[in-house]
Every structure is written in C-alpha cells, then in structure tokens.
Simulated scan of single mutants.
Amino acid sequence: MNGPPPRRTRTYALTENRAARAHGHAAQPLTMQSLICTADRPGALVGAVPQEWQTVLAWCCGTGIAVAEIAARLQLRLTPTLALLRAMHAHGLITSQTSLDADGNVAILLRVRNCLARTQ
C-alpha cells in the first residue's frame, strides 16, 4: 500500500482569498481567452511562491498560455483560476494580453461545444 494520495492545496489558499473580490478588480480584465506570460523580472520571487504558482509560471514561459488552458491543467473552475492569476499579476509574476475581440465569437464557441458534445 502506498498510502493516501497527496492532498491538493485548497483554492482559498492559492488565491490569497481574492475570489470574493475578483469582480471589483481594477486591473486589465482577464477572460478565458487571455494570454498569460511570465513577467520580465519574476526572478527572486519565484522560489518564494507556492508550488502551484511555480507550475503556472513554468507553463507561461515562452509564448504564453491561455487562461482556459491553465484552468484545465490545474483542474480548477474558471473563477478560482482567474483569482489565482490576478493574485500572481498583483505580485508582478505574470502579464496578460487580452484578445482583440474581448466579447469573443459566441457562434464559434457554440459550434465547438456542439461538435464536442456529438463526439462523446
């Protein structure tokens, strides 16, 4: 027997209790399509942040990664993922770039969802 699986860090701890205040955030809005990249100078702060933050920073190196992809890899819902990323942004660890079409193309998203539903 290997024992119980390791426990995941609670979302409350990951987001520094920012989930409740996420909607009133004055910074650049994040959407599920936003591209997240590491900041130019995360440097010395990287070793002092939680392991989950370090994992996200590793994913964001180079060309960056979409918020939706981060949520999927962390197996979190979108709202706590956004709170996590806002906390990381507040610490100067990441930058974000929103798409040109902030509203998104709903018709394309619905077609993708419908095709995925048919294949399952």
Rank of each mutant, 00 (worst) to 15 (best):
M1G: 13
P4C: 07
R8H: 13
R8G: 13
T9D: 13
Y12Q: 14
Y12T: 14
T15N: 14
A19T: 14
A26C: 08
A26W: 03
Q28G: 10
Q28S: 12
P29K: 07
P29Q: 09
L30M: 14
M32W: 07
Q33S: 13
T38S: 10
A39M: 02
A39P: 12
D40C: 05
P42W: 07
G43P: 03
G47C: 08
P50D: 10
Q51L: 13
E52W: 02
T55N: 07
L57D: 02
C60Q: 00
C61F: 06
T63H: 05
T63Q: 13
G64A: 04
I65A: 02
A66D: 09
A72F: 10
A72C: 10
A72T: 06
A72I: 01
Q75F: 10
L76N: 08
R77Y: 02
L78M: 15
L78H: 09
T79Y: 10
T79M: 10
T81P: 03
L82Y: 02
L85G: 07
A90K: 02
G92L: 06
L93P: 13
I94P: 11
T95F: 04
S96F: 02
S96P: 06
T98G: 14
S99G: 12
S99M: 10
S99I: 01
L100K: 10
D101Q: 05
A102T: 07
D103T: 00
D103K: 00
N105F: 06
I108G: 01
I108P: 01
L110P: 00
V112R: 06
A117Q: 12
A117I: 01
